[in-house]
Design a protein around this nucleic acid. Structure first.
Length: 499
DNA sequence: CGTCTTTGACCAGCGC
DNA sequence: GCGCTGGTCAAAGACG
C-alpha cells in the first residue's frame, strides 16, 4: 500500500504570471506552499494508512473466523455425506450455497480435505495443519511436530532451492476411497500395497528425499462402502514441450500404459515427497494436440509442500475441494448445478478455463492452462510466447509462497502478497492490485480474478521450468506419440493397439 | 550400491 | 462369461 505523495504539479504551464511578480518569486512561493501541502498530505495519508491497516486487520480476523465457520459447516455436511446414505445427504442447493458463501466470503473457498473420510479426525483449529485423511494422522505425529530433514531437497530439480523452513502444509482435498484395483488381495498378502495407508500410523513428515520406497503395507483398512466417496480429480492441461510439467513435487513413475484413443502413452506417477503420500498423477499428452500435456492429480498430499509446489497444489486442491463440495450429487441425482457452481466458484471469470466432468467414476475438474484467461494475458500458442527465465520464475514462485506472519487460512499460511505480485510479474501477468491476493488458495476465495492469474502464473511457470526436464525431481517422461516405438509400447494388449 | 525407470504381468470394473 | 480397459505391482535393467 504505497503512499505516493508526489510533488504537486505546479502547473507552471497554466499559471501565467500576470501580476507583475517575477516568475522566480512565484515559483519560490509555490514551492513553499507545496512543501507545506505535501507535509500535511503525508500526515493525512499516514493517518489514513493506519486506519487502513487496522481495517485490514479487522477484515482478516473476520474473514478467518467466517471461513472457519463455513469450514465447520461444510465439515458437518460432509461428515453426513461420508457416513452415508444418500438419503441422509444434506441437500444443499449449490446455487444457494454460492449465495450464502458470497455473503460470508468474498469468494467461497472451502477446504474439504476431510470430506470423504468418516474415520478421520475432526477438523482442527484454524491454525492447525489440515491434512487429508489418507495419512491417518495421529495427533502425536504431525508434520508440525516433525522437523523436516535438512536434505529434504536432496533430490533433483528445484527442490534444491527450497529450504526446509519453507515447506508448508497444504489444504487438502481428500479422496480417501480408492477403488481396489490390481489384485489387491493378492498384493495385500504379499504385503505391498502403498495405496492403502496403514490404518493407524504412517510415518509422516519429512523423510530423506531418497526414500521413495513405500511402506510395507499392513492389512488394508476395510473401507466401508458407505464411506466410499467419489474421488475427485483435477486435470491440468498445459502446453509444454517437456515431457511433464513441473509442479514442484517429486514424483516417481510406477507405470505407463497406452490409453484408448490416444497414441500417447499415459504415465502414472506417485508422490515421493513423503512415504505413503497417496497423491498420484497421470501424465498424458493430448491426442489432438501433442504439445498439450494433461496432468491429472488425484489425492491429497499428507505432508507439507515446498513453496514451488504450492501454486499447483493449491489450485488443484481448491478445485477438487470445490468439486467435492459443490458437485456432489444431490438427492435427486442432479449434478449440473454443482458443476456450475464449481465453475463459477473456482474460476468465476474464467469459464473457458475450467471445465467439469462429472462422469463416473470420478468427477474431474479440468483446468485448462492452454486457454487464455481473462486475468492472464493472451498467450499466442504458435509460436510460444517468450518464457521467463526458469530460475527467476522458480525463485519468484518459491518466494511468493514464503509464509508471512499473517493469519492462516485453512491451515495454510498466507503468503506475502507483494511477493505474489512478483510471481505475476515474472509470469507476465502482473496485476497492480495484487495486494489483495494472499495465497493461491486464499486468493481463489477472495479475488475473483485470481484463478486466471494463478493459472497464468502456473502456465508460465510450467513453460519456464518444464523445458529443462522437470524441476519436480522426476525425470519421468511422457513419450511422444507411439511413433517412438519401444518406449511407448506399453504392456498388455494395449501396447499393440496403441500403434 | 541405492534409486529410479521400464515393462511384462496381473487384477478389477464394466459393457456386451 | 468374455473381452476390453484402466490401474497397479514388481522384477529387471539403467543410471549416477
Amino acid at each position: 500500500m504505497g503512499l505516493h505523495v508526489g510533488r504537486r504539479k505546479s502547473g507552471s504551464e497554466e499559471s501565467v504570471v500576470d501580476d507583475g511578480v517575477s516568475s522566480n518569486e512565484v515559483d519560490h512561493r509555490e514551492t513553499k506552499a507545496e512543501l507545506a501541502l505535501a507535509k500535511s498530505e503525508i500526515g493525512r495519508l499516514n493517518e489514513e494508512n493506519k486506519q487502513l491497516k487496522n481495517m485490514l486487520s479487522r477484515v482478516t480476523t473476520n474473514y478467518n473466523s467466517l471461513q472457519m465457520h463455513v469450514l465447520t459447516l461444510m465439515q458437518q455436511r460432509n461428515n453426513h455425506r461420508g457416513l452415508g446414505a444418500p438419503g441422509h445427504e444434506l441437500n444443499v442447493d449449490p446455487e444457494k450455497k454460492d449465495q450464502d458463501g458470497s455473503q460470508l466470503l468474498p469468494r467461497q473457498f472451502i477446504s474439504l480435505g476431510t470430506a470423504a473420510s468418516p474415520d478421520e479426525p475432526p477438523p482442527r483449529s484454524a491454525g492447525a495443519d489440515m491434512r487429508g485423511g489418507d495419512c491417518s494422522a495421529s495427533p502425536s505425529n504431525t508434520d508440525a511436530a516433525m522437523p523436516p530433514p535438512a536434505d529434504y531437497c536432496a533430490g533433483k530439480g528445484n527442490a534444491a532451492t527450497i529450504g526446509s523452513k519453507d515447506v508448508m502444509p497444504l489444504p487438502t482435498f481428500d479422496h480417501h476411497h480408492r477403488r481396489r484395483r490390481g489384485g489387491a488381495h493378492e498384493r495385500d498378502q504379499r504385503g505391498s500395497s502403498p495405496e492403502d495407508p496403514p490404518p493407524h500410523h504412517v510415518p509422516q513428515g519429512w523423510l530423506p528425499s531418497k526414500v521413495p520406497k513405500f511402506l510395507p503395507a499392513k492389512a488394508p483398512e476395510p473401507v466401508p462402502e458407505a464411506a466410499t466417496m467419489r474421488k475427485a480429480r483435477v486435470s491440468v492441461r498445459a502446453r509444454s514441450e517437456a515431457a511433464m510439467i513441473s509442479d514442484g513435487c517429486q514424483w516417481r513413475k510406477y507405470g505407463q500404459k497406452m490409453a484408448k484413443g490416444n497414441p500417447c502413452p499415459r504415465a502414472y506417477y506417485r508422490c515421493t515427497m513423503a512415504a505413503g503420500c497417496p497423491v498420484r498423477k497421470q501424465v498424458q499428452r493430448c491426442a489432438e494436440d501433442t504439445t498439450v500435456v494433461i496432468t491429472t492429480y488425484e489425492g491429497n498430499h499428507n505432508h507439507p509442500l515446498p513453496p514451488a509446489a504450492m501454486p499447483m497444489a493449491s489450485t488443484t486442491a481448491a478445485a477438487a475441494s470445490m468439486l467435492l463440495s459443490g458437485s456432489m450429487p444431490s438427492a435427486d441425482g442432479s449434478l449440473m448445478a454443482g458443476s456450475n457452481f464449481l465453475a463459477r466458484a473456482v474460476l468465476p471469470c474464467s469459464s473457458n478455463v475450467a471445465t467439469i466432468s462429472a462422469s463416473a467414476p470420478f468427477p474431474t475438474v479440468t483446468l485448462d492452462l492452454t486457454q487464455p484467461g481473462p486475468g492472464a494475458p493472451q498467450q499466442q500458442q504458435p509460436p510460444p510466447p517468450p518464457r521467463p527465465d526458469p530460475a527467476q520464475l522458480q525463485a519468484a514462485l518459491a518466494d511468493a509462497a514464503r509464509p508471512v506472519a499473517l493469519p492462516q487460512l485453512f491451515g495454510q499460511k498466507l503468503y506475502d502478497p507483494s511477493k505474489l505480485s512478483a510471481v505475476q510479474a515474472a509470469a507476465g501477468t502482473a496485476k497492480a492490485d495484487a495486494g489483495d491476493t494472499v495465497s493461491a488458495a486464499a486468493v481463489i476465495a477472495s479475488d475473483p480474478n485470481f484463478p486466471a492469474v494463478l493459472a497464468a502464473a502456473i502456465k508460465s511457470y510450467i513453460g519456464a521450468s518444464s523445458s529443462g526436464g522437470g524441476a519436480d525431481g522426476s525425470s519421468g517422461t511422457v513419450p511422444p506419440p507411439a511413433s517412438s516405438g519401444g518406449d511407448s509400447s506399453r504392456n498388455d494388449k494395449i501396447g499393440e493397439q496403441g500403434s
